[in-house]
């Protein structure tokens, strides 16, 4: 190798060193898949919102539009065998962990073909086959369960890790504190991921939480507490990667706080009296996680405009077909009302 070649290679290596984590760590195919999943979440949420407005979905739901980078970024280092517990704002976590959006829509439509056969709906969406132990209607309810799953994984020596998703509101629940303490005492393979979107329903974190960062609370439980820009997929993935590696090495839990924002209200009852129009528009126009990731991908030559368009069109078709599947699926038989309250005994 001549001197010029050596220099060029060194320059490339140096350039690579300066690339954001995700662009060093993952192949272009993996990055395109991450973008596809972010779109899929966005379009799923929009499809659910539209279906709700048109009367296909009853009850309520909590949309995660604006939080796609945390869902997908945290999930990037995971395998299908790793597990998650999720939250009432859990559609994105479910999709990021590999769920089929057809069965998700079917569940939201209350159909027998849904993941929970129409028993759970939006707030209990789960895909156990992909390690998703379920969304949860109780704020903080899934956190101790994730710790229990991690205890299980450690006892069974599986090498699997568990992600415990929760929002900023949950960090003031007793369950959060009890669970983090036990996970640290027992050095369990669990990663606590707080999606801090600034508001627990209407109450801002400033008014509800005594510390400036929720990750600061990790210090009380002797675990690393990491704050990341939750709208920057690469930053999120980097924190997740390190926490997952640490957990797999048996060194115990990490608390990651993804600072993010929900573009929509808390739920369908939200009249939005606690956030200014300017604040919402600033996040939508200037800090959208999908646009940010698209720009990075184009900047580093992973995808071009036509490629982005192709991904979008592909997702559009998938969502359309999924909604059609949900619409045409059968409702549960009324006679099956009490099925699965208990496990059938032989």
């Amino acid at each position: 190798m001549d001197k010029a070649s050596v220099n060029a290679k060194a320059a490339r290596e140096e350039g690579k060193h300066n690339l954001p984590f995700a662009f060093r760590q993952y192949s272009p195919e993996q990055l395109k898949e991450a973008l596809r999943k972010m779109y899929l979440i966005r379009r799923f949420e929009e499809g659910a919102e539209e279906s709700y407005t048109r009367g296909f979905i009853h009850g309520t739901m909590h949309l995660s539009i604006g939080q796609e980078a945390s869902a997908v970024g945290i999930s990037l280092p995971l395998t299908d065998d790793d597990m998650i517990t999720s939250t009432h704002r859990g559609h994105g976590h479910c999709i990021a962990k590999g769920a089929d959006v057809s069965r998700m829509f079917a569940e939201f439509f209350g159909k027998e073909t849904g993941y929970c056969h129409g028993r759970g709906g939006s707030m209990h969406i789960a895909d156990v086959s992909k390690g998703n132990l379920g969304a949860n209607g109780i704020v903080g309810g899934g956190i101790p369960i994730a710790v229990g799953a991690a205890l299980s994984m450690k006892k069974q020596k599986t090498g699997r890790v568990v992600i415990s998703w929760f929002g900023d509101g949950a960090n003031n629940e007793g369950a959060f504190h009890e669970a983090l303490n036990m996970a640290s005492v027992w050095k369990l393979p669990v990663i606590f991921v707080c999606e801090n979107n600034g508001y627990g329903m209407s109450t801002s974190t400033k008014r509800a939480t005594a510390v400036p960062n929720i990750a600061d609370r990790a210090a009380a439980y002797a675990m690393p507490g990491i704050v990341v820009d939750g709208n920057n997929l690469s930053e999120v993935a980097e924190a997740s990667h390190e926490a997952v590696e640490r957990a797999r090495r048996g060194e115990g839990p990490t608390l990651i706080e993804c600072k993010t924002y929900r573009h929509r209200g808390h739920s369908k009852s939200d009249r939005n009296r606690y956030r200014t129009k300017e604040e919402i528009e600033d996040w939508i126009n200037n800090r959208d996680p999908i646009r940010l990731f698209e720009e990075q991908m184009q900047e580093y030559g992973v995808i071009n405009a036509a490629g982005i368009e192709a991904v979008r069109a592909d997702v559009e078709r998938e969502i359309e077909a999924a909604i059609e599947f949900a619409k045409t699926s059968p409702s549960p038989d009324i006679a099956s009302l009490t099925r699965d309250v208990y496990t059938d005994l032989p």
Binding site: M83, P144, G148, A149, S152, Q156, A175, N181
Partner: peptide
């Protein structure tokens, strides 16, 4: 032995039960 954490401890037991223990 668990810490004195009935809520968290019960949840840990639920999580362990649902994942094979």
């Amino acid at each position: 032995d668990t810490p004195i954490s009935e809520l968290g401890g019960a949840g840990v037991a639920v999580g362990a039960a649902v994942t094979g223990m």
